[in-house]
Simulated assay, not measured.
Amino acid sequence: MSTAAAKQNLLDLDREGLECFFADTLGEKRYRAHQVMKWIHHHYVTDFSEMTDLGKALRAKLEEHAEIIVPKVQFEKPSTDGTHKWLLGMDGGNAIETVFIPADGRGTLCVSSQVGCALNCQFCSTATQGFNRNLSTAEIIGQVWVAAKHLGNLPHQRRKLTNVVMMGMGEPLANFDNVVRAMSVMRDDLGFGLANKRVTLSTAGMVPMIDRLGEESDVSLAVSLHAPFDELRSELVPLNKKYPIAELMAACQRYVKRKPRASITFEYTMMKGVNDQPEHARALAKLMRQFGNAVQMKDAAKVNLIPFNPFPGTRFERSSDDEIHAFQKLLQVSGVLTTVRRTRGDDIDAACGQLKGQVMDRTRRQAEFRKQLAAQDISDAA
């Protein structure tokens, strides 16, 4: 007994993929893809019957061969500072978190790329959840779709969603093809129309994929550095054992040379007594000088200091405001453009490093973390 072919979720396709679908699968003109993209991403229409500039015959074809499936909102919560968090349901009991952060005339959406994360960075709450799988293109761009619709982000109005950062759950470069395809829709005029520089991908340092990103996409790059010494960084970011700082910095320089107008942001989470001492600042400034003199450096690289955001069971503490500002001053004196990220959404666990979601862990990370917490509770009680 034959089974019906699976329908194509159109959210999985960028403009080129959608054009090919219309031409090769439906036998239609490629420009029909443009009409449908506008309906989906400009007007948030998911019912083909409501796409009134398409003929009835084409709408019937779409009903037979295609679908538009967006992530389901399981839970949403606003913060007192205007930040908004969504918990979006995936398959198999999984869920991911997406966060919108309004500030100073712009609105930034923090988007997840995986269900959980396999990298096990020690200061990140997502790492304690373990890892299940990569998100599809539809699940990635679907986060933007859900947030933009909620915000009333219409093309004829002033856009409330102005920036997207791939800084949510997961390592984006470990899900390269789906992430790049989704970022293409974010930047497409038929999609969300964001400028290249307003879409930022953050990586823990997958060196070969940084090079590939430079060849295949044109977005801003952020690198989760967090330490200027290999021994310390390997403890905080285990991926450093495979791609140490020298290799990572060389890849970043190649990225900048390949894209003369590109600027790389080095993210540095400030943890009390761990990486916030003057010797760390001086070593970090030395790394930044690889991008040239003070004037050139400000164009090519900057440092964003991130106050550590605590989560249950963590052994780390946030550096004090005085320690953070002293660290910033040492970098600035060395000619390094340095900003301090304002903590937003921490009252709803939506700040940097706090995203968790619901992960049906395929590793033993959750179990190991719970075991550590239990041992810590016993030690504290003793």
Results as ranks from 00 to 15, higher is better:
Ser224Lys: 04
Lys259Asn: 11
Gly27Gln: 02
Pro102His: 03
Lys329Glu: 13
Asp47Glu: 11
Lys298Pro: 00
Leu373Pro: 02
Lys56Phe: 12
Lys61Trp: 03
Ala381Thr: 13
Gln358His: 11
Gly89Asn: 11
Leu213Thr: 01
Leu18Met: 15
Met360Arg: 15
Ile140Tyr: 01
Ala227Lys: 05
Asn240Pro: 03
Ser320Lys: 06
Gly170Pro: 07
Arg133Asn: 07
Phe131Asn: 02
Lys197Glu: 06
Val179Asp: 00
Asp349Ser: 15
Asp14Leu: 00
His65Glu: 12
Arg159Glu: 09
His42Leu: 05
Gly152Leu: 14
Tyr44Phe: 12
Leu373Ala: 06
Lys356Val: 14
Pro260Ile: 10
Ala60Asp: 09
Pro102Phe: 08
Val359Asp: 00
Asp230Leu: 02
Val185Glu: 08
Asp14Gln: 02
Val256Ser: 07
Ile68Glu: 03
Asn240Met: 06
Leu355Arg: 09
Thr203Pro: 03
Gly105Arg: 06
Thr363Asp: 08
Val336Leu: 04
Gln358Thr: 12
Arg133Thr: 12
Glu368Leu: 13
Glu323His: 13
Gly82Ile: 07
Ala138Tyr: 06
Arg258Pro: 03
Glu76Trp: 14
Asn304Ser: 02
Met360Gln: 14
Ala350Tyr: 03
Tyr44Ala: 01
Phe22Pro: 02
Ile68Tyr: 04
Glu323Leu: 03
Asn175Ile: 05
Arg133Gly: 09
Asp299Lys: 15
Glu97Met: 10
Ala300Glu: 10
Leu331His: 01
Ala6Met: 10
Gly142Met: 03
His280Asp: 10
Thr314Pro: 04
Ala5Asn: 11
Asn120Gly: 11
Leu109Asn: 05
Leu201Tyr: 00
Thr314Met: 05
His43Phe: 09
Arg198Ile: 07
Thr46Trp: 08
Asp189Gln: 13
Val165Thr: 07
Pro238Met: 04
Ile210Thr: 03
Ala174Phe: 13
Gly107Thr: 05
Arg32Lys: 14
Cys252Glu: 10
Ile140Lys: 07
Thr269Glu: 00
Ser220Ile: 09
Ala138Leu: 05
Thr52Leu: 07
Ser217Tyr: 11
Arg133Cys: 08
Asn94Thr: 09
Val340Trp: 11
Ser379Pro: 06
Thr200Arg: 12
Arg315Asp: 14
Val219Leu: 11
His156Phe: 08
Asp14Pro: 07
Tyr255Ala: 08
Ala350Trp: 06
Met249Arg: 15
Glu50Ile: 07
Glu16Gly: 05
Thr46Ser: 12
Phe266Ile: 07
Gly17Thr: 00
Thr3Met: 15
Val36Asp: 11
Asp53Phe: 00
Ser125Glu: 13
Phe327Asn: 04
Gln358Glu: 14
Asp299Leu: 15
Phe192Thr: 11
Met1Lys: 13
Lys298Met: 10
Leu221Gly: 00
Asp321Ile: 08
Arg59His: 10
Ala222Asp: 06
Gly335Pro: 01
